[in-house]
Design a protein around this nucleic acid. Structure first.
Length: 803
RNA sequence: GCCCAGGUGGUGGAAUGGUAUACACGAAGGACUUAAAAUCCUUUGAGCGUUAGCUCAUGCGGGUUCGACUCCCGCCCUGGGCACCA
């Protein structure tokens, strides 16, 4: 008897597949196209661990099924290789990042091929290849030319450990996304991208894509749209106005003070004029020195100082003192809020801390109209108006509409929409990234590098170390920095900051359509054929980073006709997310904990097909799941069984015939597997095949030649090497016949409790079943002395007698 | 605090209104073997009972329904995201 030897057969078939070009997608085909994509990895020196493999295997199953269904499938892979670990490795060892990257990608590719993944390697891309990042730079230039890239001096998030600025999306709980260091505020001149201009469309167009609800929710939340009104209040004894953003103008009769943020424009412009300017200056200095996280960590404790100025409420002429307080954010709205302490928790706390007046303008729960002295009386979201002149008695929502129109009509303010989303800080002070292709001319200002001079290549340097003063290491290289102005030919300097590591992944999915094009980032013809991506899988951690950024950049390129209009303005039709694999015991796998499982070891011990089946069987694809070193043997045993049973003589004998019961089971299994793969329910697809194999093993005569082909076909996306070895010839996805059962197991219950199961002919109607059931001795026992009140009947399934 | 997902045997999980615990791991017993491994067979939610069988059990408490892991209301816990966003 031959023994299942995966190590031997897997090598053989991989060699065959990768040399034959079986997985190479064609740019023209009579077949319908299907573009399947998983996020490309950062090739770290540690190599792949088993967690990386899960999404690749899952999508590989779909890719293989689609090919069998007659699609021209594009399933590509590449490397998102700019980033800090490689740079840090270069700093430590002096090995150039290009060299380290080449070594790492080679290792990653070896590991991927070890799993038999059906990637089209003819389209392999690398974001650090100058031929690739030429186009990343080109996109930056287009953004600049269209007014969406600008340089501004501002307080940015600064990671003192990585020595670089960070985007808001890269700050997690006040810490650096990469290294966890507490982020500081630092004044720096930075390139920013106006993603906020696309905020509405990034929300609106989610309606047209098939993403999981949690992904849509998170993006919508992150963008944080709020509709409201900017009200201008005149400053007492002055011609100046102060503008305030509010979503609740209905409560404006209850406004008793104004608070401006320490870093707001209003403070910057007027600080010298404040009667209390010394107090204000001291407060501003103190609060800006605090890292943002410390400020919020102090929770609800409100601080502030009066400016000495007051503003006048247009509605009732009331004088409202203006304070500076750091619970107000400088970057949101106008950097200034109107305090309605009776109906906003934060305003209440501020009023209490400063001893300011509190006016009730909304009736509280149970009709409470008393003076507000306690936090629990602060009514925020519902109620009817009171003490508010012409709004009295109205519901707050109705009152909001009325007062908005009133304020606009009177010319006291304008309706506006604000977003939590900020413009994207695009400058990094590191070596290993795309140089920003801009030149600063003392005469002409910022100029783009002409397209013919692209790419601006990273110069060879001896020192990669980022500097403490926040300057990029490139700034020390005079040969790189000093250049000529493309406009006036005068002496000018290059931008020395590089792009964030998200830049290369903004558009990579389009490069796969045309990876070797030297004239365009991707040809119109190929984009029209392949885009949009039909199915994009990736990690939840990218929802408000890469996924949002790349949707934005795609929309921009669509707007400027860099991509054909007919492919639509969303890059990805469907998005799914995989759960990460945890180490045994449910903790994260990490090098420092020493609990990382390397797929190389698993393949060596059990074979790639076993690893593939196990990773798909462990649990739901989208769910986080711990690795179980013992559990994997179940997958191996299953494949062993398939191997042994497939080599049985009847499967080789053309005259043999499968018994009808097993044929029925096979049909049901094909149906289940076909449907489950589409829903990414790989775990239940495998359990159905396991059940089938158990039946197959138990039946005296096994599958015949034809049925064996069908079974191997549905197993092949999961265990492609094994099924190829067992002689799978079928290149199409098998069809199934709908199984009609002749007998059914009728569930008999009394008062909803199962009391018996009776086998009977299928298709009987209620009276026929009643006849059989009501006289059955077991049931009679339950009905004795009781009156039948009602009978519920579900055909071929269940009968419930209510007594 | 807000938004989202989840809570089922010893373990991973299955079942989206109709047989709760499929499939797999582990464990126990048995067969084969000089022995072990591998393989195969049996048992495996808890309790009561000699058996037939009965009762209880899907985080907790209510509700809807002939019937609820599944739907509704109120809690508790775990994970993820956001967080003084006016």
């Amino acid at each position: 008897m031959q023994k299942y030897n995966p190590q031997k057969i897997e090598k053989k078939w991989q060699k065959e597949w990768y040399s034959s070009g079986d997985f190479v997608a064609k740019n023209t085909s009579k077949k319908p196209k299907f573009y399947l994509l998983d996020e490309f990895p950062y090739p770290s020196g540690d190599g792949l661990h088993v967690g990386h493999c899960r999404p690749y295997i899952g999508l590989d199953i779909i890719a293989r099924k689609r090919r069998m269904e007659g699609f021209n499938v594009l399933y590509p892979m590449g490397w998102d290789a700019f980033g800090l670990p490689t740079e840090n490795y270069a700093i430590k060892t002096g090995v150039h990042p290009t060299v380290a990257t080449a070594k790492n990608t080679k290792n990653f590719k070896r590991q991927m091929n070890l799993l038999g993944l059906s990637f089209d390697w003819s389209r392999e891309i690398n974001t650090t290849d100058p031929k690739y990042y030429k186009w990343t730079q080109w996109i930056f230039i287009k953004l600049f030319e269209n007014g969406l890239a600008y340089k501004e001096k501002m307080a940015i998030n600064w990671c003192p450990s990585c020595k670089t600025g960070l985007a808001n999306e890269e700050v997690i709980n006040g810490n650096c996304e990469r290294c966890g260091t507490k982020v500081e505020k630092k004044e720096k001149s930075q390139w920013l991208i106006k993603i906020t201009k696309y905020a509405d469309r990034l929300i609106e167009d989610l309606k047209n894509v098939d993403y999981p609800a949690r992904v849509k929710d998170q993006q919508i939340n992150w963008i944080g749209r709020s509709e409201g009104i900017n009200i201008d209040y005149q400053i007492e004894n002055s011609k100046k106005f102060i503008s305030v953003f509010t979503t609740r103008p209905d409560t404006n009769f209850g406004a008793t003070f104004l608070v401006v943020a320490p870093d707001s424009k209003f403070v910057k412009e007027n600080v010298e004029l404040f009667p209390e300017k010394e107090k204000v200056k001291a407060y501003v200095k103190e609060s800006l020195a605090k890292p943002e996280i410390d400020r919020t960590a102090e929770g609800k404790k409100k601080t502030g100082v009066p400016t000495g100025w007051s503003a006048i409420n247009n509605l009732n002429g009331k004088k409202m003192p203006i304070y500076v307080g750091d619970f107000v954010l400088g970057q949101f709205g106008t950097g200034c809020v109107v305090g309605v302490p009776g109906h906003d928790l934060r305003d209440f706390e501020f009023a209490k801390a400063m001893g300011l007046e509190i006016i009730r303008v909304v009736v509280g729960p149970d009709g409470d109209t008393s003076e507000i002295t306690d936090v629990r009386q602060v009514q925020e979201e519902k109620g009817a108006m009171i003490n508010s002149g012409f709004l009295d008695g109205k519901d707050i929502h109705e009152a909001t509409k009325i007062i908005m129109d009133h304020i606009v009509e009177k010319g006291w303010g304008t309706k506006v929409v604000n977003y939590k989303l900020r413009d994207w800080i695009f400058s990094r002070q590191h070596y290993w990234g795309e140089p920003i292709p801009m030149i600063d001319c003392p005469k002409c200002g910022w100029q783009t590098v002409p397209e013919k001079d692209l790419p601006v290549e990273l110069p060879k340097v001896a020192k990669y170390q980022p500097t403490d003063d926040g300057e990029s290491p490139l700034s020390a290289i005079e040969k790189f920095v000093n250049t000529k102005c493309p406009k006036c030919d005068g002496v000018a300097k290059r931008e020395t900051d590089t792009m964030p590591n998200w830049a290369g992944s903004n558009w990579y999915f389009m490069r796969y359509a045309d990876p070797k094009n030297n004239k365009e980032f991707s040809s119109e013809k190929n984009l029209k054929y392949w885009m949009p991506v039909d199915w994009y899988n990736g990690g939840m951690e990218h929802t408000t980073l890469h996924l949002l950024y790349s949707r934005f950049i795609f929309k921009f390129l669509w707007d400027i006709d860099a991509v054909p209009k007919e492919i639509g303005n969303e890059p990805y039709k469907k998005r799914t997310s995989h759960g990460i694999i945890l180490a045994e015991g449910g903790v994260k796998m990490s090098k420092s904990k020493g609990n990382v499982i390397n797929p190389d070891d698993i393949v060596k011990e059990y074979g790639a097909d076993t690893l593939r089946v196990y990773e798909m069987f462990m649990g739901p694809f989208e769910q986080m799941i711990p690795w179980d070193a013992k559990g994997i043997v179940g997958a191996r045993r299953f494949l062993e069984k398939v191997y042994t049973l497939s080599l049985k003589p009847e499967a080789r004998n053309p005259k043999s015939e499968t018994n009808p019961k097993l044929v029925n089971e096979l049909n049901k299994t094909i149906k289940k597997v076909s449907e489950d793969i589409e829903a990414m329910k790989f775990n239940t697809a495998i359990s159905a095949m396991m059940s089938f194999v158990n039946e197959w093993q138990a039946s005296e005569i096994g599958l015949d030649k034809k049925d064996l082909q069908k079974f191997l076909a549905i197993l092949s996306p999961f265990a492609p090497h094994l099924t190829a070895e067992l002689g799978l010839k079928e290149k199409t996805w098998p069809e199934y016949e709908e199984v009609k059962e002749t007998t059914v197991m009728m569930i008999v219950s009394v008062n909803g409790k199962v009391r018996d199961k009776m086998e009977m002919k299928a298709g009987l109607d209620q009276s026929q079943v009643e006849g059989l059931v009501l006289h059955a001795p077991k049931i009679k026992l339950w009905l004795e002395g009781k009156q039948v009140r009602k009978i519920i009947f579900v055909k071929d399934k269940l009968i419930n007698i209510v007594v």
